[in-house]
Structures are given as C-alpha cells and as structure tokens.
Amino acid sequence: MNPRRKKRLSLVLALVVGLGATVGLLLYALNQNMDLFYTPTELVNGKPDGTKPEVGQRLRIGGMVVTGSVERDPQSLKVSFKVADVGPAVTVNYEGILPDLFREGQGIVAQGVLIDANTVEAHEVLAKHDEEYMPPEIAEAMKKTHEPLKYSETQLQGSTDQ
C-alpha cells in the first residue's frame, strides 16, 4: 500500500471514529435528559405494556389536583398534594412557589423524581391554562388507557376513596 492510500485510509478511519463518538455522546446526553410521562394510574399500576418506573427515576406526572389534598408547611415553601386521574391518587411533594393557576380540581403536570410507588418529589409544577384546556400528553394518555371523563370535585374525591 502506498503512502497516499495509507494517509487517506487513516483520515477516513479517524472521521468514522470521530462521527461514531459524537453520535454516542449525543445519544447518551439525550438519554440522561429524557423524562417519561405517566398518569397517576400508570405510575401505580404500570403502563399497558407492563413497564413501571423505578424508584429514583426522573419522570413527569400529570393529572388533576385532588380537592382537599393540598397541605402547606407554614414555616417554609413546602407543599404536598395528591394528583389523580380516574384511578388511584399519587402524592406530589414540592418546595417552591406554585404557579398562579394552581388550584384544587385543576390539571397539573409535575416534573421530578419517583421516591416510592405513590410519591413523587417534584422540582417543577406546571398548571393548565383554563378549565377546558388539557395538555395533549394527558389527553392522549387518558384516551389510551381510560375513557374520557369530565372531572368534578366529587368525582376526584371519590377516586381517592378506593
């Protein structure tokens, strides 16, 4: 093999290795920042394909804030509340200032870490815009796993009594 071909081959090889390393690092970074979305029922019972989140996993959970479940610590900004869809309720713990639109009976999406099977430690809470709006992810997840329901305060309270 002449020196010119060796130089070309080493250049192509270095380019392929560099491109492979770049793609690998990109996939690793994206995987670290991926938060899966769950409804409260999927969090407790698992998704239809049988997958359940592990303790310590980052995730997003969306549902309706159960009426009467909001507990605020008078000494700090710690807040605890329950989120439910049509099944069991999940407790969300959050420390910080909640959005202005946060209310009992309203839809929210919380992003955080799973502490145990029924508890999420949130680092961000997002509230929906109005009574008719539902985030597309929540609407799609509820269509897949549940029949659509109009939520009233009595229905939300009844879902936690199970």
Rank of each mutant, 00 (worst) to 15 (best):
A84F: 04
A127G: 15
D161R: 14
E147S: 13
S69L: 04
D130T: 08
V16A: 15
E95Q: 14
V44N: 08
A122G: 06
G87A: 07
I61A: 07
K128S: 14
A14N: 10
I138Y: 08
V90Y: 08
K78L: 10
F81T: 02
L11D: 14
G20M: 03
P88M: 11
D161A: 11
I108F: 08
M134A: 11
S10L: 12
Q111T: 09
A21G: 07
V90D: 00
G68T: 11
L114M: 15
Y94Q: 00
K150P: 01
T160C: 06
Q157Y: 03
P48Q: 14
N31Y: 03
Q57F: 01
S152K: 01
Q75I: 01
G112P: 00
A139I: 01
R72N: 05
F81D: 04
S80T: 13
T145E: 08
V120R: 13
G87V: 13
A127W: 03
V66G: 06
I61N: 04
S69F: 06
L77R: 15
P40T: 12
G63S: 02
A14D: 10
H129N: 13
G50Y: 01
D49S: 02
D49H: 04
Q155M: 15
D73I: 12
H146W: 07
L126Y: 12
D73V: 13
K143D: 13
R58K: 15
T145I: 10
V113H: 00
K82L: 10
N2H: 10
E140T: 14
Y28S: 00
P48F: 13
G96K: 05
Y28V: 00
K78I: 07
V70L: 15
V79D: 09
L36C: 01
V16Q: 03
Y38M: 03
G107I: 07
T67S: 10
V120D: 09
M34G: 05
V83Q: 02
G158L: 14
N93F: 08
Q75M: 10
Q162S: 10
S10Q: 15
A139N: 11
D35E: 14
P148W: 01
V23W: 10
V44C: 09
V79Q: 06
F81M: 00
V16L: 12
N31R: 03
Y38V: 11
E153R: 11
D73K: 03
E147K: 11
T145V: 14
P135R: 12
K7N: 06
D161F: 12
V86E: 07
L13G: 12
L13Q: 10
E147I: 08
R103G: 07
R4C: 00
E42Y: 05
T91L: 06
L9E: 14
Q111A: 14
A127C: 04
V79N: 11
R5I: 15
V113G: 02
V79C: 09
T160H: 09
E131C: 03
P148E: 03
E42V: 03
F81R: 02
T91S: 04
V83A: 05
L26I: 00
V16W: 07
P99V: 06
Q106T: 15
R8F: 09
Q111E: 13
E140R: 04
V125G: 06
Y151H: 09
H129W: 15
Q32C: 02
K7T: 05
Y38T: 08
V109M: 05
A84H: 01
L26R: 06
L25G: 01
S69P: 10
E121K: 13
P135A: 13
G56E: 05
V66C: 07
E153Y: 10
T119P: 01
T41A: 12
M34T: 05
L36I: 12
V83W: 07
T119A: 06
